[in-house]
Design a protein around this nucleic acid. Structure first.
Lengths: 340, 340
DNA sequence: CATTCCTTTGAAAAGGTTTTCAAGCAGTTC
DNA sequence: GAACTGCTTGAAAACCTTTTCAAAGGAATG
């Protein structure tokens, strides 16, 4: 026995005095092995500290045991939570994770998608809010297992995991309406994201259900640059009839709104109520604590893995769509509005 | 040509009318191929959209083009920034990244280290503050390229990238001493982390240089549970001679200290000054803005990749140690102390 | 012209596992 | 007693690539 080299299945077979087939059966817990032989093989494995070679295993099994995860960037708590869910579920399913960070370069998305679909991984999780159809078609054409995370186009031909965006926005808006707010400023995300459109519908529907029309002047679009969000607030305040509440489609924007108002010595919630979306960690630690719509990010990651594994195990299984429920988390940043 | 199956090197060889050896030489950019044949093979590869099979490649024992990244968890901004640096540097060096999240389960660390060293990846980046010697020895014995990120045991046999922990803590403490503080409470991280020990030395050295002895009652250890940090503050306040400033080894703890003080209506910085470590994003947005020691996390990630690539390209190259410089970021959470 | 050397090319082995197929054997059924 | 069944076992193929070795051919050297 050469001690400078790792033990292989052949070494174990020799040591136990059986064939490699039998060792393989023991390793994989297959039936049809006499108990005493199984024991002898296990002892030999133990003695040689045998670990099956992953590459060889997967070479023959045609599965790579790796799934890809495509994200824009890692710098947000949102992504951290999604990946935590994905990561734990993958560990349980015994998959490794290859991380593809696109840094918002569309070329890279296409490049990665192609590389992955050509056999680099067994499946792909896509956590990129605006998905270019070009490479999605590639994935679909190749019948390559993939799941879109946090989009809500339930009619598409790709599987997806999302949340009840419409209902979440509807709940938040209704809550403000119940608090007697009639002018509710809205700061949206990119309107081309399907989830932004759903949330916008929820906002409008809640207004309509209270007999209110929506005012286009109260709808502004964020662009993810902090000073910009502050300027949107100023635009609201400059209106003849400024909003008494502001609802944003993400908590980061909501916190910036609160910060802007604080600097202007406008009190939250007494002068203006604020509602966010996502329920990130800072929402709880902010002053005042931010009322927001809980976004089950961790669970979303786990659900995505579940669907992906199903697709990998049953190639050609039909697309599935899961919608997880949002929840309004009422804290301190809203209060009843009296015209007085 | 069966279109239902992925193209292999054999298919390419047939299509180009050459042997598999020749295709292999083209794929790996080896010499000894006539230019016109090289071109013909490349065209065939293109036409069949051939991608070499990773497992097979790795099985026979060459580079896999993947490096592993071992982290505890993804939920912190700290990790997000490190991985951003790593990720960008790896993209430039044309490596893929396999992510191993240990979730603080020591068994998983060993398991991952073994898997990786078996040849699953070409190198391993370890961003785990307390590194178990057991699997490090495995890596060293196998002469497997690896880099420890954010530890500062420069005398070890493994390469590492760290920061000037001693100097950072020394600077922060000196700053407080210059502001006339004489009782400086310290909230440390896990004392078994080498970086905590270095920072503690810096704290003590600064005191000594100002002719002060350190008071053990002023040194407490954080355990990363939010209510706990608040209790440490209470312990400080209960002292006969409570501290006039508090220095913590991470910003999250510092922010919790500030929050605890705010709830107790103790003003920062007028009543107590606070200094953190790391300079996370929330440090700038907190009220008051947190004075802290800047930790070049992103750069650390890039530097780690640089060393790792060097080790992969020159197997057996001696360990390297890089120390990046910290910087005191003076903001609003400290002020001059007058006994009055 | 014979020998040596270099470049180009292909055949074949190696790498470690799973899986398929066939064979051996004991027990059961007619 | 012959045929059949079910369990156990092993031989060999398959998975896809890299690498080693040998052969073939042409150019340079003696």
């Amino acid at each position: 026995m050469k001690s400078n080299h790792k033990a292989t299945i052949v070494d174990v077979a020799k040591a136990a005095g059986v064939s490699i087939s039998t060792v393989s059966r023991v390793v994989n817990d297959y039936p049809h092995v006499r108990p005493e032989i199984r024991l002898r093989v296990q002892e030999a494995m133990e003695a040689l500290s045998f670990v099956p070679n992953r590459q060889a295993r997967r070479l023959v099994g045609s599965r790579s045991g790796v799934v890809g995860l495509m994200v824009h960037a890692l710098g947000t708590e949102y992504i951290a939570q999604v990946t935590r869910g994905i990561d734990e579920a993958l560990y349980e399913a015994d998959y490794d994770l290859i991380l593809y960070t696109t840094h918002r370069v569309p070329d890279r998305e296409v490049h990665y998608a192609q590389a992955v679909a050509q056999g680099l991984a067994d499946g792909l999780l896509i956590v990129v809010p605006s998905v270019g159809d070009a490479y999605l078609d590639t994935l679909r054409a190749a019948n390559f297992p993939h799941v879109l995370v946090d989009v809500d186009n339930g009619n598409e031909k790709s599987s997806s995991v999302g949340i009840t965006n419409y209902q979440g926005a509807y709940d938040a808006t209704s809550y403000l309406l119940k608090l007697n707010h009639r002018r509710i400023g809205l700061i949206t995300d990119q309107p081309e994201w399907s989830l932004s459109r759903s949330r916008l519908s929820g906002y409008k529907a809640a207004l309509a259900d209270h007999g209110l029309d929506y005012d286009p002047a109260l709808i502004q679009q964020d662009n993810f640059m902090s000073p910009y969000t502050g300027r949107l607030v100023e635009a609201f305040l400059a209106l003849d009839d400024p909003p008494t509440a502001i609802f944003t489609f993400n908590d980061t924007a909501a916190l910036q709104v609160m910060e802007t108002l604080r600097l202007k010595r406008i009190r939250v919630p007494q002068d203006i109520s604020v509602v966010g979306f996502d329920d990130i960690a800072q929402a709880k630690t902010a002053t005042p604590e931010l009322t927001t719509v809980y976004h089950p990010v961790y669970e979303m990651g786990r659900a995505a893995v579940e669907i992906l594994c199903e697709h990998i195990e049953n190639p050609g299984s039909p697309p599935r769509h899961i919608q997880l429920e949002t929840q309004l988390r009422i804290r301190e940043s809203c209060c009843y509005w009296s015209d007085a």
